[in-house]
Design a protein around this nucleic acid. Sequence first.
DNA 1: TTCGGTCGCTTGCTACTTGCAAGTGATCCT
DNA 2: AGGATCACTTGCAAGTAGCAAGCGACCGAA
Lengths: 168, 168
Amino acid sequence: MDRNRFADIHCSVSRAAGVAADPWTLLILRDLFLGLNRYEELRRDLGIATNVLADRLDRLVADGLAERHAYQDNPLRHAYRLTPAGRDLYPVLLTLLAWGDRHRSEGGPPLRLLHADCGHPAVPSLTCSHCGGALTPETTTAAPGPGGRAAPGTALVPGRLPTSLGPA
Amino acid sequence: MDRNRFADIHCSVSRAAGVAADPWTLLILRDLFLGLNRYEELRRDLGIATNVLADRLDRLVADGLAERHAYQDNPLRHAYRLTPAGRDLYPVLLTLLAWGDRHRSEGGPPLRLLHADCGHPAVPSLTCSHCGGALTPETTTAAPGPGGRAAPGTALVPGRLPTSLGPA
DNA sequence: TTCGGTCGCTTGCTACTTGCAAGTGATCCT
DNA sequence: AGGATCACTTGCAAGTAGCAAGCGACCGAA
């Protein structure tokens, strides 16, 4: 799967997917958010093959989602830290978590989120930043934007729009 | 990459990632949301290899995210339609889209969302369904839930919690 | 009735990716 | 000196991706 291919498709979903849509990558991001940030910690937690872990960490750094920094000299040891772009993937992780809680957790969610601001269990909900209402397929419409262009991977832009994002 | 492996990890992010964390799968879901729902339409739009498309569609059906239905007899032709579980992945697509718009779109977003309820361009924002406030790594805390268990892939549950989901 | 075209796939081949196991080199503690 | 930890790299077997070709059922035109 050549990942540049997804970067070249003229669609933000595709470009984001090309960077983040890999199970190991997402689990590494999850662990970085949770504070596991060293190669050995990640390997032990995830049981991931070492070459794959090295590859994914390299990719995270190359893609600008994480950065390496030395946490000690002698011996020199590095840890990984999320960049702002990496931290911006937090909503992706939370929506995946919410889906998993809803559809793949008999016996209740493995992890419960608490929202510090209100002190309650946090069930993530996707809202319109303008009016605060829920964003659902039924209440959302797509139209070509300024960066839109007719291109492979984007049947939507050429002409069939504006279209509801709901199912046909 | 054995996908059952991610289903077995005791974490909703992992289980959701095992199902959805594949670029082709996400692009197929995107197209299903947009109303492209036949094999040929998907193949033409995405430029995906036919065996891979067949495989991903089978997987979507097996995972309960989509279902096949005949849209005509003579000749018998099938189309794919999202199930409720598949439609529940909408927030995942929107958060990916928002990330791509923010970090991978020089020249503006390829696609603009409109929120029908308020008539404004919709910038998705993740909020707490209890208080309506933003959910960020800084304002969120994780604690083991009822389905939590010490297991590989989940260093968080065993004991180091409760922990902020912010970076270390 | 034959001819080409569409649709929804499957098969075969080659090239890349994964997972596992072993090895490496630097540094530490004993 | 001997073992342990950390952060990797290398080698190999097995699985997956991409491409091209083929297939069977039907359609419409000639």
